[in-house]
Design a protein around this nucleic acid. Structure first.
Length: 813
DNA sequence: CATTCCCGCCACCGG
DNA sequence: CCGGTGGCGGGAATG
């Protein structure tokens, strides 16, 4: 109804102009015109949000009619025309607005109370919608019900505890297993089209968890006391369960359908009541939207066989496994967070984003907006692309550090800066910040689809792998890069599905920059992936193959791991079995990934996002997506790393001449400790110099590109280089830069994520190692290197390693 | 057509 | 019994 209305347009224009006025005037009721709400503090925020919000951004490509061939900036934005747009009424946006009203970390002094109808009125939405938001917030103990129409706002203060509690409960519920089971089941279905299959264990692990009711926090319950109603039903509980799923699963990614199945509680096989399932999904979307607004999760797409399926990735703070003292909790939560806590609550969001600039002006700054939009769009594209290849400009970070001036060019960078200035976490609210946050991981991730393996053994391998950072070898001149291991949640493996593989690889990236790389990768990978993947995967268990090869038996089946396995398996198989042409391709492939440094990444759970934030900034959001999308890339690196770690004989490796870098060495010990001891010693001698470079670069003392000499390893990669050249061609800036960039990209791409197994305690060791390693250069502990996280990224240069922010943080602590 | 998810009916329940 | 809550699912908007 009234899709386009002139009047509306006018209104909108006005609205836009108004600094605060809600950009969205009530569509339904034209009468009120623009209510000038007293949004003082938040108004700016809103604007920002609206501007930044992905939804709005593309918004229908805005009138094509109008054209605005060039610029746009404000103009483009201004006439949105679409008032009634559904997106503008989305729960996510509404939630943003809601959140903007309250400080993330309200000081005890300010008592913020929430009056539902008041809020509803102000936000101009039906009360019903507010309930949706409040209910999930309540599930996180960010608010508590005081009385009838009244809630108390606690902000994120309780978040750490709540998450911890939820995680604990989730573990008790054996959600991990349930997830596994469901995935396996799915997998089976897929594979055995016919269904049937004897099914090893159709019934789930009885988790009679049944409905656990609402998880309360120690300090909180009494609050609600009198008016509190028990028996909370769905949304609240559902929300908690949903969060639990993220907290317990290793790649902290949960697909909607899996979540729905688990939440339905029914595991009983397939009685998937279709309608029930649908309803559940609907609810999950509601919850997810709110959680997304809270920056706790973000939407991703798992590329799976048959297309992609919606899923969400946890991007919230890591929850420490062990509770220990309260103090710990608080502090542990990431330094940045802690810091943020103390930050003035008030301005939080938007303002912080652009501190240096006038906030308002900044907000409106056309270029900024544009950037945001662009980013968003890119991100979107990437995401949307079914099998989008990787793209992401790894270069971003480097550039930043190296050449600040260049920032302008890279949107990501710009963002980065912005964020950097402000406290990162805080601004999360803004959509702007969002993109940045996403990107934090430099490594591409692999989406895992655990199903295949069904097997059993828990995989420590994965853990190992994860633990170690895998380094993708740079190409040619590039110095070795170290990838920080993303933490558990961060990365995941992509499924390599046979079918997908092709597509993925082949498809060009939306992003120009990356494209080149991608294509290269694709070339190499394709052959293998495609064929092998299909055959292999379909046919046998990757695990088996792996094992045969020399893999440590223990591989587990975590989803990510599986991926790895698969990929590895593929590779191996291909190499061995399919020597024929495949072998060739393989070689190429191998070539492609010459050496890598393994760094032990600790999986420190503690890493806080804040740490990431830096990285995030550096990496544009798209990157992540990219990562996901490009399974291939990820696979390769992983393999290499794993191999090393495992001591796999690597014939594969051999050709490459992979050497163990210092990193690897460091890693070795870690590995041993962590779980499999397989190799440790195997590492060959590593040139000390490389290490130094590493460190130095890392620290930022040396420009990444510079360190060249050290890496002997990189030198070989004939095929790959060729590919690169070919693909890449096109224009280049300075050769060097380009190269670097490429490398980076490569690296990034390559870095696959290693899946992280849930290995709580062991992490410490690795961490320690890592820290020491890094510190060495710097000096005594202190965190000279990246010191502030902000620079970590910057410091990094092409060849440089990425240091995981977490580490830094950890070390700092 | 598939995915996302808004809208709002209407059952429930606390007061 | 009333009005606040919030389950629930149709079906519209989007992809």
């Amino acid at each position: 109804k009234t899709p386009l209305k002139q009047p509306a347009t006018s209104n909108s224009a006005l609205t836009e102009i108004q600094p605060d006025g809600q950009p969205l005037t009530t569509p339904t009721k034209p009468k009120e015109g623009l209510p000038a709400e007293p949004w003082t503090p938040t108004s700016n925020l809103k604007m920002l949000i609206s501007a930044a919000s992905p939804e709005i951004r593309s918004r229908e490509q805005r009138r094509q009619l109008l054209n605005d061939p060039s610029e746009e900036h404000l103009l483009g934005e201004e006439y949105e025309k679409s008032h009634p747009s559904r997106k503008e009424k989305s729960l996510g946006l509404l939630c943003h607005k809601f959140l903007a009203r309250y400080p993330d970390y309200p000081s005890s002094t300010d008592n913020s109370y929430i009056s539902l109808d008041e809020v509803a009125e102000e936000l101009k939405v039906e009360r019903r919608r507010i309930y949706d938001i409040v209910n999930v917030l309540e599930s996180l103990h960010m608010v508590s019900r005081l009385a009838k129409n009244r809630y108390a706002w606690h902000g994120r203060h309780n978040l750490p505890k709540t998450l911890q509690a939820l995680k604990k409960v989730g573990e008790n519920n054996k959600y991990t297993q349930q997830i596994q089971l469901i995935k396996r089941r799915e997998y089976e279905h897929e594979f055995d089209l016919d269904g049937d299959r004897k099914e090893g264990m159709p019934k789930s692990i009885a988790s009679k968890d049944s409905e656990m009711s609402f998880v309360e926090l120690p300090g909180m319950e009494f609050r609600a006391a009198s008016v509190n109603s028990r028996k909370d039903k769905s949304l609240r509980v559902m929300s908690q369960k949903f969060v639990m799923l993220f907290l317990v699963s290793t790649p902290q990614i949960v697909s909607l359908d899996v979540a729905a199945k688990i939440l339905i509680g029914e595991e009983q096989l397939e009685d998937l009541d279709k309608s029930k399932f649908k309803t559940k999904i609907r609810r999950l979307y509601d919850i997810a939207n709110v959680l997304s607004s809270l920056q706790l999760i973000k939407k991703v797409h798992l590329t799976e066989e048959r297309g992609r399926k919606p899923a969400f990735e946890w991007i919230g703070p890591d929850v420490l496994p062990n509770t220990q003292d309260t103090k710990l909790e608080t502090s542990s939560t990431t330094c940045s967070q802690a810091i943020s806590e103390y930050i003035p609550p008030k301005e939080q969001c938007s303002k912080n984003l652009f501190p240096s600039r006038g906030k308002q002006s900044f907000t409106r700054h056309p270029s900024l907006i544009k950037l945001v939009k662009t980013i968003e769009n890119d991100r979107r594209k990437i995401q949307s692309a079914p099998t989008s290849p990787v793209k992401r400009s790894a270069s971003t970070d480097q550039n930043l550090s190296a050449f600040p001036s260049e920032m302008a060019q890279d949107p990501a960078i710009a963002k980065h800066q912005l964020e950097g200035q402000s406290k990162k976490e805080k601004e999360n609210k803004m959509k702007l910040s969002r993109p940045a946050s996403k990107s934090h991981l430099p490594l591409p991730e692999v989406a895992p689809k655990p199903e295949p393996l069904g097997s059993t053994a828990p995989c420590q391998l994965a853990a190992l792998t994860q633990t170690l950072g895998v380094c993708a070898p740079g190409h040619t001149s590039v110095s070795p890069v170290i990838l920080p291991h993303p933490h558990p949640g961060v990365s995941y493996a992509i499924y390599l599905q046979p079918s997908q593989a092709h597509s993925v690889v082949l498809q060009p990236l939306p992003c120009a920059n990356v494209t080149g790389i991608k294509s290269v990768n694709s070339k190499v990978l394709n052959p293998i992936t495609t064929e092998e993947g299909d055959n292999q995967i379909a046919t046998d268990d990757p695990t088996k193959s792996v094992t045969a090869k020399e893999r440590p038996p223990t591989t587990s089946e975590t989803s990510p791991q599986r991926c790895l396995k698969r990929s590895q398996a593929l590779e191996e198989i291909s190499s061995i079995k399919r020597r024929r042409r495949d072998a060739e391709s393989l070689d190429t492939h191998l070539t492609f990934f010459p050496s890598g440094y393994l760094i032990p990444l600790t999986q420190c759970s503690h890493g806080s996002k804040a740490g990431f934030s830096d990285k995030e900034k550096a990496e544009v959001c798209p990157a992540q997506h990219t990562a996901y999308s490009s399974p291939i890339t990820g696979v390769i690196p992983v393999t290499g790393s794993e191999l090393k770690a495992v001591n796999i004989p690597a014939f594969h490796i051999t050709p490459l001449n992979i050497m163990l870098s210092p990193t690897s060495i460091a890693a070795a010990p870690v590995l041993g400790n962590s779980s499999l001891n397989s190799s440790n010693t195997s590492s060959p001698q590593i040139p000390a110099s490389s290490v130094l470079n590493f460190t130095l670069q890392h620290i930022g003392l040396i420009p990444a590109g510079v360190q060249v000499p050290a890496n002997p390893f990189l030198q070989h990669m004939p095929a790959s280089s060729q590919a690169e050249n070919v693909t890449y061609s096109s224009e280049k800036m300075s050769v060097q830069e380009e190269k670097v960039r490429k490398n980076r990209l490569h690296l990034a791409d390559n870095f696959l994520s290693c899946p992280q197994p849930p290995v709580p305690k062991e992490a410490q060791e690795p961490q320690t190692v890592t820290e020491n390693f890094f510190r060495t250069p710097g000096g005594p502990n202190t965190e000279p290197p990246l010191s502030a996280k902000s620079d970590g990224t910057a410091g990094t240069s092409p060849g440089t390693l990425y240091i995981p922010q977490r580490k830094l943080e950890v070390s700092e602590d």
